[in-house]
Design a protein around this nucleic acid. Structure first.
Length: 810
DNA sequence: TCCAAGGTCCTTTTT
DNA sequence: GGACCTTGGA
């Protein structure tokens, strides 16, 4: 192989070269945080195209977010453009040519090569497949979908489920109470079934109790309802391709032949259905144990079990662990190869030391240690604050101080991470106060009410069965159409077995329902007719037409409400986004535009002037794949992080720990861990003392040190002049815990752990009396699973060295 | 049919 | 503390 002649292999280490030059067959790349896995992926794609003449249309690359897809495509483009540059000019290099020359080369590469590369998230890629082939799918109960299907988001489908519970099945309040039937919960259960490839029928067969039976029934009705609206939810975008490829050999063969080289990023976070889909396309086999022909064909997965943080949406990292077994060819004796990327190029060794130590407490993992390539750096700082407000002030202050060290303030060097979205508010306030630009991740632009309204209009235009969207906007802005009118329309649509949209647009049928013309409905129908007339105008133009002709603009513009002014801004931004979509997209249809908005995770920028130079505010989940010079992980308190909702089983705790590990490994130069002594939350009149997170105790002082918070005037006044140290305070509030801390310090051998045994009663300062159900681990790593009488149904996972518990009644 | 006021639930985490 | 829903009066 002529590797040395290629730019492509420059700046790669030995393992990366191994991964990048992989050609056919399966390969597992175990890539630790910051080990250059994106590099491995992008360079491999470039290598396939450049040196092995693979046609980009035969490559399928799956990323975890759309943003990652976009970035990856860009990086491949640059790699290939550099190659072109090198081959074309003798006297010029990429570094010496001008920016515009670079752009010309990139454009060329894009047009000639990358245009046909399929790269994106599971959801966006396979919605594309369904746009082409969904009509070939035969549902066992004869349900049908058309190419123009709408994609329902979480809220849309929750609404549907709610309707089914209340109107279709008419489940009484009493039954709801008894069986704990809540739309949100049911949605979650159905989603989980779909993520495990289970149909409503299979779920019904598996049902062990009344609750599960009802869930299966709602699931069944839900699918019917989706079909009626010609809509799919997020999970269907994966599930339906699986069902289709299973039943239709021709279609499967076609896609199998198209996608010869499959690359998957973040493989640890795939779920069963996604795995099934990949398996079907890769092997073209419906059955196990047939041998696979790997000629001109490969599957290349990259992942890190230590960063698996999505089990709540049915991700299963054992899929990663089993990869080598699953794609092993039975006819061959050779093992499926594995490459480990363990050299970390991102973080200082103190940060890595802390992360490595923390993750060691997990039992269920592939052994792997991140090796530092940078200097020691600063120790990880642990800061204990009085309350959440002080925490916010301390963090923002720190950011101000650190940013002033450099000549130009680079706010984008800072990220504030938290476990739950709700925690962002105080930071937002503090940042605004100081006029520091920031951006909030995860607040989906397309979730805003006004934006969703306009999207609903578009959906109606494209998909004439999307009654859900019709009901949303038929009276927005107000046209005097109320419940009574709506009920009539619904009833008649059902009687005539057509969609409500088709019904109201049928003059004759409409006359039957409203012998006296209904002004509001007529007005709406007229609007629809007018808009259909302009159908070919493309998304941005159509949106503007909707805004003008519906009276939506007018209504907002005449309002003096501040909120409505903001709405106008958002809608203008929507138009701009649509224009940008038209510039970037190959397709350009309204359907495709709608799909892109449904799957988009575009972030909301609060500060409109500067989108790039701002402090990032994001959840730990959102931080995956990103890196920042300075990282603040906030709210490290027991019950918040690890979340009390995720502290019921050891494996849940392990996932929380991985989340913390992900957070730590985002930091390049500095990491700060903060926690507050008390924090008010809803449902609690008075704030409660918050114990520090167990994760803080798991990072040894070799890599971490405590730092004092910056006191605000208010906090000082409240607390008095003399400050207590953290341990002092714990002592004054909770003598039990501090005594255990003392034990922990002097702890010498495993004997101490043996005083707990299953069945013993314990007393907990907060939860009261409980019984030990299970014990896992030993000695310093012992964990107790305790059932408390006060906590109905749930057991708690406790670290006896930390939790305020003592034996009871012995 | 509309709107304001009050009540209830909620908070994990996301494509 | 807020989004969302229900309720009751206009």
């Amino acid at each position: 192989m002529s590797q040395t002649n290629n730019f492509l292999f420059e700046s790669l280490n030995k393992e990366q070269i191994q991964a990048v030059s992989h050609l056919n067959g399966p390969l597992l790349v175990v890539a630790g945080a910051g080990s250059g896995k994106t590099k491995a992926l992008t360079h491999r794609i470039a290598n396939l195209i450049q040196n092995h003449s693979v046609n980009p249309r035969n490559i399928l690359a799956v990323t975890f977010t759309n943003k990652a897809a976009k970035e990856m495509k860009e990086r491949v483009e640059i790699i290939l453009a550099r190659e072109v540059c090198k081959n074309r000019y003798v006297d010029k290099t990429w570094a010496t040519i001008s920016k515009s020359e670079q752009n010309i080369l990139r454009e060329e590469v894009y047009k000639e090569k990358l245009k046909d590369l399929w790269i994106g998230t599971f959801h966006s890629l396979f919605s594309k497949l369904l746009r082409l082939d969904i009509e070939k799918y035969k549902h066992p109960e004869g349900l049908k979908w058309k190419k123009t299907f709408s994609i329902y988001d979480e809220k849309d489908s929750e609404k549907l489920i709610k309707e089914i519970i209340n109107e279709d099945l008419k489940i009484t309040e009493q039954i709801k109470q008894e069986l704990d039937i809540k739309p949100r919960k049911i949605k979650y259960k159905i989603s989980n079934a779909k993520n495990k490839c289970l149909s409503s029928k299979q779920l019904a067969e598996k049902a062990k109790n009344e609750e599960e039976k009802i869930i299966a029934e709602i699931y069944k009705k839900y699918i019917e309802s989706l079909s009626k609206n010609n809509a799919l939810d997020f999970d269907d975008l994966i599930l339906f391709p699986v069902l289709l490829l299973r039943q239709n050999d021709l279609v499967r063969d076609l896609w199998h032949r198209k996608f010869r080289h499959i690359l998957i990023d973040e493989y640890q976070d795939t779920n069963q259905t996604q795995y099934e889909l990949i398996k079907l396309i890769t092997t073209n086999k419906n059955y196990k144990n047939e041998s696979i022909n790997w000629e001109d064909r490969s599957i290349f997965v990259v992942g890190d079990a230590d960063q698996s943080i999505y089990s709540f949406r049915a991700a299963d990292f054992t899929i990663l662990m089993n990869f080598r077994k699953d794609f092993k060819n039975d006819s061959e004796l050779s093992e499926v190869p594995m490459v480990k990327l363990e050299e970390n190029y991102r973080s200082t060794s103190n940060i890595l030391g802390a992360a490595n130590e923390l993750i060691k407490s997990n039992t269920d993992r592939i052994d792997k240690v991140l090796k530092a390539t940078r200097g020691d750096g600063e120790k990880v700082k642990i800061i204990c604050c009085d309350d959440a407000k002080e925490e916010a002030e301390t963090v923002i202050n720190k950011i101000e101080t650190l940013s002033s060290l450099s000549e130009k303030r680079i706010w984008s060097n800072f990220a504030i991470l938290y476990r739950t979205r709700a925690q962002s508010r105080l930071f937002e306030t503090e940042l605004s106060k100081k006029k520091i630009p920031f951006r909030l991740f995860g607040l989906r632009f397309y979730d805003r009410k006004e934006v969703k309204d306009i999207i609903a209009y578009l959906r109606i235009l494209v998909n004439n069965e999307d009654d859900g969207s019709l009901y949303r906007v038929i009276n927005i802005p107000r046209r005097g159409i109320g419940d009574k009118t709506l009920d009539k329309i619904k009833q008649h649509a059902e009687d005539n077995r057509i969609s409500a949209i088709d019904l109201i647009r049928n003059k004759n049928l409409l006359k039957d329902i409203f012998p006296k013309p209904n002004k509001g409905v007529d007005k709406f129908v007229q609007l629809m007719d007018e808009l259909s007339f302009y159908e070919d105008f493309g998304p941005s133009k159509t949106i503007q037409l909707i805004l003008e002709k519906s009276g939506y603009w007018e209504e907002l513009k005449k309002s003096s409400d501040h909120e409505d002014k903001e709405r106008i801004d958002n809608l203008n931004e929507l138009i701009n986004a649509a224009i940008q979509y038209e510039e970037e997209s190959e397709v350009g249809t309204i359907e495709d535009y709608l799909a892109s908005t449904a799957l988009s995770t575009d972030t909301q920028t609060k500060d409109k002037q500067d989108k790039t130079n701002s402090v990032s505010l994001l959840t730990l989940h959102n931080s995956k794949g990103l890196e920042f010079k300075n990282v603040f992980i906030t709210g490290l308190e027991d019950g918040l992080f690890p979340s009390s909702n995720s502290s019921n089983t050891p494996s849940e705790i392990e996932e929380e720990r991985r989340l913390c590990y992900v957070g730590l490994t985002r930091g390049k130069d500095r990491v700060f861990l903060t926690h507050a002594r008390d924090r008010t939350s809803w449902g609690d009149d008075q704030s409660r003392y918050r114990y520090p997170s167990m994760f803080l105790e798991e990072i040894p002082s070799k890599y971490s040190e405590k730092e004092e918070p910056r006191r605000s005037g208010l906090a000082r006044a409240r607390n008095g002049p003399e400050r207590l140290t953290r341990t002092d305070r714990i002592e004054s509030i909770n003598p039990i815990q501090s005594s255990y801390n003392a034990i922990r310090k002097t702890y010498a051998g495993p004997s101490k752990g043996e005083k707990w045994s299953v069945g013993d009663k314990v007393h907990h300062a907060q939860f009261g009396i409980g019984v030990i159900e299970r014990i896992s681990g030993k000695g310093a790593k012992i964990t107790l699973i305790v059932k408390f009488a006060n906590l109905v149904g749930k057991s708690k996972v406790l670290d006896p060295w930390l939790a305020p518990i003592k034996p009871f009644g012995k």
